[in-house]
Design a protein around this nucleic acid. Structure first.
Lengths: 145, 145
DNA sequence: CGTGCATCCTGTAGTGACTACAGGAGCAAG
DNA sequence: CTTGCTCCTGTAGTCACTACAGGATGCACG
């Protein structure tokens, strides 16, 4: 029940970084492997030693993923938001393109929702001679059989 | 410009099945490998020989994928819609669960759309001191820095 | 009958974004 | 010193494909 004491100076191991950010340990190592997250220094025993810089970057990545950005997009955003932080227009462009994708996906899903919802409702009524769900899936409307 | 003549009896090779259903050749072979599509008989030379039964099954799979069903769900639907075609309730359940998934995904995306849209708009006005898109991504609102 | 070339075959590996081990090493408390 | 947790590397699996490489087949045309 004691507070966990890290080695002095705000550094901590991977498990703590995982807890702090909500990102799976395996995923953190994966991010390092693919170059999303800078490789931290190691302890004498070879363990990764993180600090709050890593927390910030990793939380940024996590948030980006939650917002549906790909890792490549996030990598680009990280680069843009880096030390320079100059080209806000570039950032806006990535985000705007992503927003278009999201809107297209929503439109697609809405169409699906309508179709599937109506079909299931017909099924619920029990008025369908054969299963209407299978019928929207079947390419052949099996008329005159 | 002549109509392509298949060997008599409504059988055709994989390329034709691909054209008929709009499913990539590689994908058809993949479906066979994972047991989604029954393996067709082969010609003397070892080529796959399909007939309209395969067309129907493959088109069913394709439609299911377009509707966002997983291959496992489609496999289940195919089994349910098979020779027996009895338990319409089971079919409805799979579809209903899938509809729930779709609705949840739509809700998620809508939230995202709002957040991202508003943020980009703020950026467009040019009134933001630093890039607002990066700011929603950043976990630390950098107040008092 | 030969030739060219489109189509087909198998097998393997790559994609994106992880997740799940196996098999071992380190480390701190009791 | 032992227990048990955390950590390490490396590999392989997931989902639904896609993309080759390297070779065989089949068919129309000359």
């Amino acid at each position: 029940m004691e507070a966990i004491t890290h080695s002095r100076g705000d550094t901590f191991p991977i498990g703590e970084l995982s807890r702090l950010t909500g990102v799976n340990i395996e995923t953190i190592r994966y991010y390092e492997r693919i170059g999303m997250l800078p490789a931290p220094p190691r302890s004498e025993g070879g363990r990764r030693v993180y600090d709050h810089h890593h927390t910030r970057v990793l939380a940024f990545i996590r948030r980006g993923r939650e917002l549906g950005f790909t890792l490549d997009e996030i990598k680009a955003l990280l680069a843009l938001g880096g030390p320079e932080r100059a080209p806000c227009g570039d950032v806006r462009e990535i985000a705007a393109r992503h927003l278009d994708d999201i809107r297209a996906k929503i439109a697609d899903l809405r169409k699906l929702e309508r179709l599937l919802g109506q079909t299931i409702d017909r099924c619920e009524g029990g008025t369908a001679p054969e299963c209407p769900v299978l019928d929207i899936l079947s390419p052949e409307p099996r008329r005159r059989a």
